[in-house]
Simulated assay, not measured.
Amino acid sequence: MTLPRQLALDLPPLTSFSREDFLVSPSNEGAYAFIERWPDWPARRALLIGPTGSGKSHLAAIWSEAAKAVIMPAGLLGDEAVPELVARGAVVLEDAQAGIDETALFHLLNLVGEAGASLLITAHEAPDRWGLGLPDLISRLRAMTVLTIDTPDDDLFRMLLVKLFLDRQLVVDTSVVDFLVRRIERSFDAARQVVAVLDREGLSRGRRITRALAGELLKEVLAQPDESE
């Protein structure tokens, strides 16, 4: 007899962007240390570069709280917003690589420098790979301090998985975490996807999240082989 699956509601996890919840490791400690140094920044402008889900928004939120900065998606930046942003004294532009008004960003960089304001820009890659066409803007971006967040090392990836499970109010055995560290893609996005699938499927199947369930789901749902040691 096949038991019906429970209805799994796709509720968002409780994610904290507090300073206390930021996981520091060799892959991000340089960027974290620089953020903590504010307002002692060269020219008070910095670029924060790292892969999707790497903690850029978390670091930006930590800095925003300290600097009382306004946070804006870079795609919403326009010339009309520049004076007001500069007047706020501190600005975060998120995800600049996704598309940005080059003229407005050029004016923002100039006015931030003149006013002694602070600016933090986040992106997946360095400005040379944004497809920019304004030479003066490219030159100013290249002159900014660049902070990088690298692919997570073993310790950070393990801590990240534990945090993602706890964000969903799930407690799993260390054997599950160790199994996932060895099996899944070493990226923040992959970790989020796997934890979300384990949460949803564990609930719908009425099963605890175990190493066995993780192995099944890697094969069934995530189409990854479960290679036994």
Score class of each variant (00 low, 15 high):
L11F: 05
P13V: 00
L14D: 07
R19Q: 03
R19F: 00
D21A: 13
V24R: 12
S25A: 15
P26W: 05
S27P: 01
G30C: 12
G30Q: 13
Y32H: 13
A33S: 15
I35D: 12
P39V: 03
P39D: 08
D40Y: 05
A43Q: 04
L47E: 09
L48F: 15
P51V: 02
G55C: 06
G55R: 03
K56R: 15
S57N: 08
W63L: 13
A67S: 06
K68V: 06
A69F: 06
I71T: 06
M72K: 14
A74H: 02
L76M: 11
A81S: 07
V82N: 12
P83T: 10
L85I: 09
L93E: 00
L93D: 01
E94P: 06
Q97M: 07
Q97Y: 10
I100H: 09
D101R: 12
H107T: 01
N110A: 02
L120A: 09
I121L: 05
T122F: 06
A123Y: 04
A126Q: 10
A126Y: 04
A126S: 09
W130A: 07
W130S: 07
G131S: 07
G133K: 07
L134E: 14
D136N: 05
D136V: 13
D136F: 13
R140T: 05
R140F: 09
R142P: 05
V146F: 13
L147T: 11
D150G: 15
D154Y: 02
D154I: 03
M159F: 00
L166N: 10
D167R: 15
D173R: 03
T174K: 08
V177N: 11
L180W: 08
L180A: 12
R182E: 12
R182V: 08
R183H: 15
I184G: 00
D199L: 08
R205A: 05
R205Y: 00
Q224R: 13
E227N: 01
